[in-house]
Design a binder for these strands. Structure first.
Length: 271
DNA sequence: CCGGACGCCTGTCGGC
DNA sequence: TGCCGACAGGCGTCCG
C-alpha cells in the first residue's frame, strides 16, 4: 500500500489535527504488528504533547519531546483522525487518544506496520540510522546514483528500491520512474551511464511529486486521512498494465518478476 | 560488502 | 457456488 506519496499524503492529512495536541493515552487492541508494540510505548506517549509531525523515508515521526513515536504503515496501513468513541473495525489496532476527544487510528489488516518509541537522538534509532537520502532532496541526483552503483551487479530496479541507496522508492514508482527514464529494469545498476542516471533521478522526483499532488495511488485500500482515495492510479503508465499498449510506442507492456516483486516495463522503450 | 531469498499477515482474485 | 493457489503498495534478517 503506502509508498512515499501515500505516507506524505497521510502526513499532510493528520499533521494539522495532531500538532500541538496532547496525547491522553495509547489504546492497543492488537499489539502484534511487525514487531510487538511494547507497553514502553504507551508509557512514553501518555501525557506528552505532539510538537510536530514529520516524515523520514516511509516512517512518520510524531515528535513528543524529548523523544518521538516512529510509525510505519507497512503494506496495508492507513490512518484516520476520528472521534475517540467511534467503534473500531476488526483491523483498527491502535488509537492514539488526544485531549480534544478525537484519536489517531491505525488500521492495518496485514499487520506489517510498526510503532516504536525513540529516545533522543531520534535520528540515531536503528530503523532510521542507515537510510539513504530523501528522493525529493538535493541529496538524490544522477552523480550520486552513478557513483554508488559502480560495480553493482544487481538490477537497477532493485538498486533504486534499496533504502540504503535512496528511500521512498517502492515497487510502483520504481517501475514508473524507470519507464519515464527509458531504462530497462533488469539492467545491472553498474551498467547504467551517468546521463541516464541523471534522467532517472529526475524521473523519480517527477513521478513522486506528481503522485503526492494527486493524493497518492489507491490500488486496493489506501485512503487519505479523510477517507478519500488517492487519484494517481489513473496516471500510472506501466504499473499494473501488463498486456496493455505502452503509452509511448504501443508495444504491449510486459510483466516480469525481479527480486520477488512484479515489475512492469516496455521492452521497446526501455533499454 | 553484496545479492538474493525468506517470512511476517490478511484479503482478493482468477481458474477450475 | 466453493475451494485453492497466487499475489498484493515493505523491509529487516539471514545465509552464501
Amino acid at each position: 500500500m503506502p509508498e512515499l506519496p501515500e505516507v506524505e499524503t497521510s502526513l499532510r492529512g493528520i499533521a494539522p489535527h495532531l500538532t500541538g495536541r496532547r496525547v491522553v493515552r495509547l489504546v492497543a487492541r492488537e499489539r502484534r504488528l511487525r514487531w510487538p508494540v511494547t507497553e514502553q510505548v504507551d508509557a512514553a506517549v501518555a501525557g506528552r504533547r505532539i510538537e510536530a509531525v514529520t516524515r523520514r523515508a516511509k516512517y512518520l515521526l510524531l515528535h513528543l519531546p524529548p523523544g518521538a513515536l516512529i510509525l510505519h504503515l507497512g503494506m496495508s496501513g492507513s490512518l484516520r483522525v476520528l472521534p475517540a468513541e467511534t467503534p473500531p473495525g476488526v483491523h483498527d489496532h491502535i488509537d492514539l487518544v488526544l485531549e480534544d476527544g478525537r484519536c489517531l487510528r491505525l488500521r492495518d489488516p496485514r499487520r506489517f506496520g510498526s510503532l516504536h518509541w525513540a529516545e533522543p537522538p531520534v535520528e540515531a534509532h536503528p530503523l532510521l540510522a542507515r537510510l539513504g537520502p530523501e528522493p525529493l532532496s538535493p541529496g538524490l541526483d544522477g552523480a550520486y546514483l552513478h557513483r554508488l552503483s559502480r560495480g553493482r551487479r544487481a538490477s537497477v530496479k532493485t538498486f533504486i528500491m534499496d533504502s540504503h541507496v535512496v528511500v521512498g522508492v517502492g515497487n510502483i514508482y520504481a517501475s514508473e520512474a524507470l519507464f519515464r527514464a527509458g531504462i530497462h529494469p533488469h539492467r545491472p545498476a553498474g551498467r547504467v551511464a551517468l546521463p541516464r542516471y541523471e534522467g532517472l533521478a529526475a524521473s523519480i522526483k517527477t513521478v513522486l511529486t506528481a503522485a503526492i499532488a494527486e493524493g497518492g495511488t489507491s490500488l486496493r485500500d489506501f485512503v487519505q486521512e479523510d477517507g478519500r482515495p488517492g487519484y494517481f492510479a489513473q496516471a500510472l503508465r506501466v504499473y499494473g498494465r501488463a498486456g496493455q499498449p505502452c503509452p509511448g510506442c504501443g508495444e504491449p507492456v510486459r510483466q516480469q518478476r525481479i527480486g520477488q516483486r512484479s515489475s512492469f516495463y516496455c521492452p521497446r522503450c526501455q533499454r
